[in-house]
Design a protein around this nucleic acid. Structure first.
Lengths: 153, 153
DNA sequence: GTCTCTGCAAATCGTTTGCACGTTT
DNA sequence: AAACGTGCAAACGATTTGCAGAGAC
């Protein structure tokens, strides 16, 4: 039903490929983003690896994520009133966002007439992103929303 | 090439229709959002109408916009690192966002396989939004970006 | 050796909130 | 009269920044 994101990423090679300096913190951030294959806030990433780097600062996580975004392989998702979520975006994909529990689900493989639209507007396309908002399967069924509330999404 | 948004809106009727209280500030905010048919920040709306209401507060603009979003006829766009832009969204449409100058252009009329995706994921759709990022016609041509920089978009 | 990254603390800035007062219903 | 909106100032919270020291190249 959906392509699982079972491709492996070598953080060192990725950083090298994009001409970014290779530091333990960056490797760890990339590893975690890849491992969870999910949409993490800066805060979540910080907590996930702070054991590994006792002196780690949230600012470093933000700065690092910004470097990744500038490089182009991380995407910032700003949905709801909450903190941004960051998404390793090596394979383009789109999102289903639950308005009740905040859960974000990926989907791939969709044909969009992007070129046609771009041509009509003389627009040079770099990225595109389709976001569908509504209720996820769980929340439709009247399940209490707190089940999803604190999960990593 | 694009449907012009030349429909007229009666703020009073719109507020009435959605069961919201009719106040001069709300009427003015709606009038301006409709008049510019563009994507304004709360700050821009504030400055646009503060002459009319010398005692107006930015907080009121935010509160009002939030009420409109809850009602469902205004959409909040969070693109780039900047403040949210607010978009009168009576006719569903999508956006071309220029990464250089920040200009946002609308487009309508696109067939998306939303139902198919929703069915595959057992997702109940409320809204959807396609965002295309890249370079607008002006910025591709190497025009200095400051031409667009401060325009209302 | 140079340049960049990291970590800390403080600053920034968009947005929200509490409360007293005014307006709409 | 009751309910809600407005305006003010203060609070909030996510993100950014300046700077000194450490690490990558």
């Amino acid at each position: 039903m959906e392509l699982s994101r079972d491709y492996s990423i070598d953080p060192v090679l990725l950083l090298k490929e994009y001409g970014l300096r290779i530091t333990p913190q960056r490797i760890s951030i990339l590893s975690h983003m890849n491992q969870y294959k999910m949409h993490l806030t800066a805060e979540q990433i910080y907590h996930a690896i702070k054991d590994e780097f006792p002196s780690l600062s949230v600012a470093t996580v933000y700065n690092t994520l910004k470097a990744f975004i500038d490089a182009g392989f991380v995407k910032e998702l700003r949905v709801g009133d909450h903190a941004s979520k960051f998404d390793l975006n090596l394979i383009p994909h789109h999102h289903l966002v639950c308005e009740k529990c905040g859960h974000i689900e990926d989907f791939h493989f969709i044909d969009l007439p992007i070129d046609k639209i771009a041509n009509m507007h003389n627009f040079h396309v770099r990225h595109y992103h389709l976001e569908i908002n509504g209720l996820c399967a769980n929340c439709q069924e009247g399940h209490p929303s707190y089940i999803h509330q604190n999960q990593i999404s």
